[in-house]
Design a protein around this nucleic acid. Structure first.
Lengths: 230, 230
DNA sequence: ACTTTTTATTACCCTTGGGTAATATACGCA
DNA sequence: TGCGTATATTACCCAAGGGTAATAAAAAGT
C-alpha cells in the first residue's frame, strides 16, 4: 500500500529519473578520474585498477558503466568534442563576420584546450581506439577543421580577412591552439581565459584586414574580452 | 607459417644480400623501421615482433642493438633531437639578426617535423620513457624552446621584431610547427620544403618590424625559397 | 517484510608481448 | 681448417593487466 501522497513531483517515473541521474553522475566521475590519469601517465600506463582506486571502488565496478577500457577512452574524447562542437554551433549561429567568428572560435577552442577533456582531444592516440570509433573521432576533427576554414573563407569573402591560403592558415592556427593542450598546466601565470583572449588576437593579427593592437607585451593591459567562455 | 611481409628495400637483412654491414647501419635500420611502426600504430600497439618481421629478422636479434623497447623509443627521439639541435647550432652561429634567425629556426624545425624522426619528437609520449630519459628529453625540449625565445628576444633588442610577449609568441610558433608532425603525410600537395618556406614567413609575419609579403593565397605563385633545407 | 534490480566485491582466467637462456650459424682471421 | 666473436634463431618464461563469473550487499519496488 502506497502511503505517499501522489503529488505531481512524486510521479512514478520521477524516482527513476533521479536514479538515472545518479548513475550519470557516477559515470562522469569515472570519466573525470580516468581522463586525469590518462593525461598524467598515458592511456597504456594507466590501469583500470588505479582508476578504480582513486574512486574508492574496485575494477569490476567500472564495468557497470563502461564496456571496456577503450570505451572509457572514447567517452573522454566525446566529452571534449561535445564541448567544442556546442561552442562552435553557438558561435556560428551568431552570424558575425568572418574575422569575428574566427576570433570567437579561437577563443573558445583555446579555453577548451586548457581543460582535461579538451586536452584529451589532442593528447590521446587515435590508434588506441577501435576502428569505428576512429572514424567518429576523425569526423569530429574534420568538423572542427571545417568550422575554422569556413570562418576564414567567409572572412576573405566579406573582406574582414586578407586573402590567404585557407588550409595552411587553419593548420597554423589549430596547431598553436592544440599545443595548448600540451603545455598548459593549471596554476600557471595565465588563466585559460587570459590565454584565450591573447590567442584570439595573436593568431589572427597577421590575417586581419585592419590590424588590431597586438596583445600587450607583458599582459599589462587586459585584452578586451570578446565573450565569456561560460 | 611464414607471414613475413616483403622487406623494405632499405633493410640490410634482405635475403641473399650481403649481410656484412656496419653495425651502426643496422642499428639505424632498426630505428627507421621502429619509428615508422610507432608512428603508424602507436608505441604500445606496435610490437617488437612486428619491427623484427619488417626487417626480416626475429625479435631477439633486436637485442643485439638495443637493451629494451624503451631504449629503441628513446633512440628514435634522440635521432630527431640531434637533427634539430645540429641545425640550431648552425643557425645560431650565423649570427644574423633576431628576425632572420627566427625565420631560419622556423624553416629548419618545420622541415624536420615533416620527417619520421622529427615527428617522433611530438608524437611520442614522454611518460613511456624511463625516468632518466624523461629528464633528457625534457632538457632537449627546453633547449629548443630557448633557441626560439632567444631569437625573439634578440629580434626585439635589435628592432627587427616588434615588442611582444616572448613566451606566448614562442608557444604559438612552436605549436603551429609541432602540429606539422601530426598532419603532414608524404605525398601531399606541398613538399616539406614548401611548407617550411611558407611557415617561416607566416608565423613571423605579425611580429616582424617591416612586414613581409604574406605567402600567396593559393600557392598559385611558388613561394620564394628563402633557403634550401640542405 | 519480501522480492527484484542494481551495484559492488572477491577470486580468478588468460591473452599479450617484453625479455631471456640455450644454441646454432655466419664471419673474420690465423 | 679450426677458433673466437658477432649475430641470429628457437623455445621458453612470466608479469601485467584487461576482462569475467560467482556472489554478496545495498537500494528500490510492492
Amino acid at each position: 500500500m502506497d502511503t505517499r501522497t501522489p503529488a505531481p513531483e512524486s510521479s512514478p517515473w520521477l524516482p527513476f529519473e533521479s536514479r538515472r541521474r545518479a548513475r550519470d553522475e557516477k559515470r562522469e566521475a569515472v570519466l573525470r578520474t580516468a581522463v586525469q590519469l590518462f593525461l598524467e601517465q598515458g592511456y597504456h600506463r594507466a590501469t583500470l585498477n588505479e582508476v578504480a582506486d582513486r574512486l574508492n571502488i574496485t575494477k569490476p565496478a567500472l564495468y557497470n558503466y563502461f564496456r571496456s577500457k577503450e570505451d572509457i577512452l572514447f567517452e573522454c574524447w566525446v566529452m571534449g568534442q561535445e564541448r567544442v562542437e556546442d561552442r562552435i554551433s553557438e558561435i556560428e549561429s551568431a552570424h558575425e563576420n568572418g574575422l569575428a567568428t574566427l576570433r570567437m572560435l579561437v577563443h573558445a577552442y583555446a579555453a577548451t584546450m586548457a581543460s582535461d577533456f579538451g586536452a584529451s582531444l589532442v593528447r590521446f592516440n587515435v590508434a588506441d581506439l577501435s576502428e569505428p570509433n576512429q572514424k567518429i573521432t576523425l569526423a569530429g576533427k574534420r568538423r572542427i577543421d571545417r568550422a575554422f576554414r569556413n570562418a576564414i573563407k567567409q572572412g576573405i569573402a566579406d573582406h574582414s580577412i586578407k586573402p590567404c591560403d585557407v588550409k595552411l592558415t587553419a593548420f597554423a592556427i589549430l596547431g598553436a591552439l592544440n599545443w595548448i593542450g600540451h603545455w598548459y598546466k593549471p596554476g600557471g601565470e595565465l588563466s585559460p581565459d587570459q590565454i584565450a583572449d591573447d590567442f584570439a588576437i595573436r593568431l589572427t593579427a597577421d590575417i586581419a584586414k585592419r590590424p588590431d593592437k597586438k596583445p600587450s607585451e607583458k599582459k599589462a593591459t587586459k585584452p578586451v574580452r570578446k565573450r565569456s567562455t561560460r
